[in-house]
Amino acid sequence: MKPQDLYILNQPQKYRDMLLHIIAVIEQTLPDVVLEFKWKIPFFYLNNKPFCFLNVSHKGKYVDVAFNKGFQLKNNLEFLNGDKRNTYKSLRYFSLETIDNTVLISVIQEAIKLY
């Protein structure tokens, strides 16, 4: 089994469900994206370049979908969290029910244009 799969499957069910849902949305929106395991987290690559990563914060009780060129994004700013980062901005989800597919897909589609 791949390390990225182990990362996901070893999460408590709350986080695992969110991760699997987010992965499905990303892969459906970007069929050419590749999920790798870099820096001990699942990291999506687009055209061999880092696109976004998934990070579970057990302390903060959320899942982050952090976009590599997040500070270049102009839309959906009310949903994006910069959290003391220089280049990444993320969508932060606290439960499966809080995932808004429309916003997630919109951010993905805008981020694609930066590549």
Rank of each mutant, 00 (worst) to 15 (best):
K2N: 08
K2P: 07
K2H: 07
P3H: 07
P3L: 14
Q4A: 03
D5Y: 05
D5H: 07
Y7T: 13
Y7R: 15
I8G: 07
L9C: 08
L9N: 12
N10R: 15
N10V: 12
P12A: 08
K14W: 04
K14D: 07
K14A: 14
K14R: 14
K14G: 03
Y15A: 15
L19F: 08
L19Y: 06
L20R: 04
L20F: 04
H21K: 10
H21T: 05
H21L: 10
I22C: 02
I23W: 03
I23N: 04
V25T: 07
I26F: 05
I26Q: 02
T29V: 09
T29W: 01
T29I: 05
L30G: 10
L30F: 04
L30I: 13
D32Y: 05
L35F: 11
K40I: 06
K40H: 15
I41W: 07
P42G: 02
P42D: 04
Y45H: 12
N47Y: 15
N47W: 14
N48S: 08
K49C: 05
K49R: 09
C52M: 07
C52F: 00
C52E: 02
L54N: 01
N55G: 08
V56M: 09
S57L: 11
K59T: 10
D64Y: 12
D64T: 11
V65L: 15
V65E: 00
A66P: 00
K69N: 15
K69W: 13
F71K: 12
N75H: 13
N75G: 09
N76C: 05
L77N: 08
F79N: 01
N81T: 10
K84Y: 08
T87N: 13
T87D: 11
T87L: 13
K89L: 08
S90H: 07
L91P: 00
R92N: 12
Y93G: 01
S95Y: 06
L96Q: 04
L96K: 02
E97I: 08
E97D: 10
D100H: 14
T102N: 10
T102S: 09
T102E: 14
T102V: 09
L104P: 00
L104N: 00
L104M: 11
S106M: 11
I108S: 02
Q109T: 09
E110W: 15
A111Y: 00
I112Q: 07
I112S: 02
I112W: 13
